[in-house]
Simulated scan of single mutants.
Amino acid sequence: MHTKLVILDRDGTINRASEEFVTSPEEWHPLPGALEAISRLNHAGFHVVLATNQSGLGRGLFDMAALNAVHAFMLKSLAALGGRIDAIFYCPHAADEGCNCRKPAPGLLHQIEERYGIALKGVPYVGDRLRDMQAAQAAGCAPHWVLSGRHARGDVNSLPAGFPPDTQVHADLAAFVDHFLGNAATPQHGMAPTVSP
């Protein structure tokens, strides 16, 4: 059975990215249209999973109880709109710990492959940072860059240096879903970067 899967980053893709870290439900604020976009993916038959770096754990800035509370709030907010996230894969390590799961390493995506028993070739991975796109490329995913994160810079009509050449560009998660569901019946591979308004 073929699993219809979409993989998302969290901070800057689903919710506003904080200058520090999102450490409590009170600090978690969904981006406009993001939760509705996930619900639309679900209703189109797609499973949605998260792959997110959470180095604040490794740095001692928050604990597992705080992370679980944030995710419980996120899932409750999403359920109120008829959506769901099937699983959350996260890297708890600080940048200097040398793990293989902190993006841009593809370890989180390999964990998803193992959990679902599928190859991720062509599966969309949506994120707001270069390291998301690099992880996507390393795991064989289709990289989709959203400009809703606080690190987005430059002209939305062109890719910055270092991005995988097949990266597609979208204003935000809702724009990605508009594009993706519009093309889901006829996937296009090897296309030049496209920009969603």
Rank of each mutant, 00 (worst) to 15 (best):
D178C: 10
G127H: 09
G12E: 06
D11G: 06
R40W: 02
V195R: 15
R59T: 03
P32Q: 07
V146L: 05
A69H: 04
E114G: 02
G98Y: 06
T186M: 12
D155Q: 01
A65E: 09
L5A: 06
Q168P: 00
F163G: 09
S24E: 11
A69M: 08
R102M: 12
K103C: 11
P30W: 11
N53E: 07
A79G: 05
R150K: 11
H110G: 00
H93N: 04
E20M: 06
R131P: 00
D178S: 13
L57N: 01
I85V: 15
P187Y: 03
P106S: 14
F73E: 12
V146D: 05
H43N: 08
A185F: 04
D96E: 14
S39P: 02
G33S: 11
L50N: 02
I38V: 15
D166S: 13
S148F: 07
L159M: 10
I7P: 02
K121F: 03
H29Q: 12
R102F: 10
A66S: 14
V156F: 01
N53C: 08
T52C: 07
K103N: 09
N157G: 11
A184K: 10
M1F: 02
Y125V: 15
A72K: 15
A80Y: 03
I118K: 05
A65F: 00
L173W: 14
G117I: 10
P104A: 10
V156N: 00
R10H: 08
G107Y: 06
K121I: 04
P124Y: 11
S24P: 05
V48M: 06
Q137G: 06
G182M: 05
R40D: 07
I38P: 04
E26I: 03
C91Y: 01
T13S: 04
A17N: 13
Q111P: 00
C101P: 06
H93K: 07
Q137L: 14
F176K: 08
W28M: 09
D155H: 01
M64Y: 05
A80I: 02
N42W: 01
V177H: 13
G149N: 08
D178G: 09
R40T: 03
L130P: 03
A72H: 14
P165S: 10
G58Q: 06
T52W: 05
A51H: 06
E26Q: 15
S18K: 13
L81N: 03
N68Q: 15
A44T: 02
R129M: 09
A184I: 13
G98C: 07
F176C: 10
Y125K: 12
T23V: 07
E19Q: 12
H189R: 13
H179F: 15
K121N: 08
A119K: 14
A142M: 10
V48A: 15
N53R: 08
A139T: 02
E97A: 15
N68W: 04
M74C: 09
E36A: 14
M64V: 03
A171I: 09
A34L: 11
Q54F: 09
